[in-house]
């Protein structure tokens, strides 16, 4: 019983922290009495249908965030530059990319993050990790950025060893 309880606490403490933070921000730090009533319901829910965080190596989270923010700025600048460019350009097209990430969560996150990289946008995520991309500029070096992002995600989801074996 104690072990079950300990596991439950280990698995769900983050939910309490996130809920409390959201409550503080959304209610301007008031109404904690009501939060005390809501929290048991939340925990009961968590007990019967647990929401588990994916197994992620958190020390790789900050580098990923840095890469992501940098690419976000680059992507915005790229698009803005093209929009303000005097001549129209027409070099857009489709491409396919085979990702080596194996877990479904990592693939979903990868597909979403690609949409914010400069010049690429996910069209569809097919089974076995085949991604269909739309490229703003087919002559640009988009593979490099996508591969860098994939590398970071593989580190985050602890899939780098599988990657080397392939």
């Amino acid at each position: 019983m104690t072990i079950t309880l300990w596991l439950f606490v280990r698995r769900s403490w983050w939910l309490v922290v996130v809920a409390a933070a959201c409550w503080a921000v959304l209610t301007a730090n008031s109404g904690w009495g009501f939060f005390a009533c809501v929290l048991p319901i939340l925990l009961l829910w968590q007990w019967y249908s647990p929401l588990v965080l994916p197994a992620v190596r958190w020390r790789y989270f900050l580098p990923l965030l840095g890469l992501f923010l940098r690419q976000l700025v680059m992507g915005g600048l790229d698009v803005a530059g093209r929009a303000l460019m005097p001549q129209r350009f027409d070099r857009s097209g489709f491409a396919e990319f085979q990702t080596r990430l194996s877990s479904a969560q990592a693939q979903m996150l990868f597909a979403s993050l690609i949409s914010l990289l400069p010049g690429t946008c996910t069209v569809s995520l097919q089974p076995a990790g085949r991604l269909q991309l739309h490229l703003l500029d087919t002559e640009a070096n988009w593979q490099q950025e996508v591969l860098a992002l994939e590398q970071q995600l593989a580190l985050l989801f602890a899939e780098s060893d599988k990657q080397e074996r392939v």
Partner: peptide, 20 residues
């Protein structure tokens, strides 16, 4: 308004507006 096909316009809206 200016990009040539619909998918390029998709890029324009999502990226520039998120950054903005």
């Amino acid at each position: 308004l200016r990009f040539a096909d619909s998918f390029s316009r998709l890029h324009a809206v999502t990226k520039a507006d998120t950054l903005g």
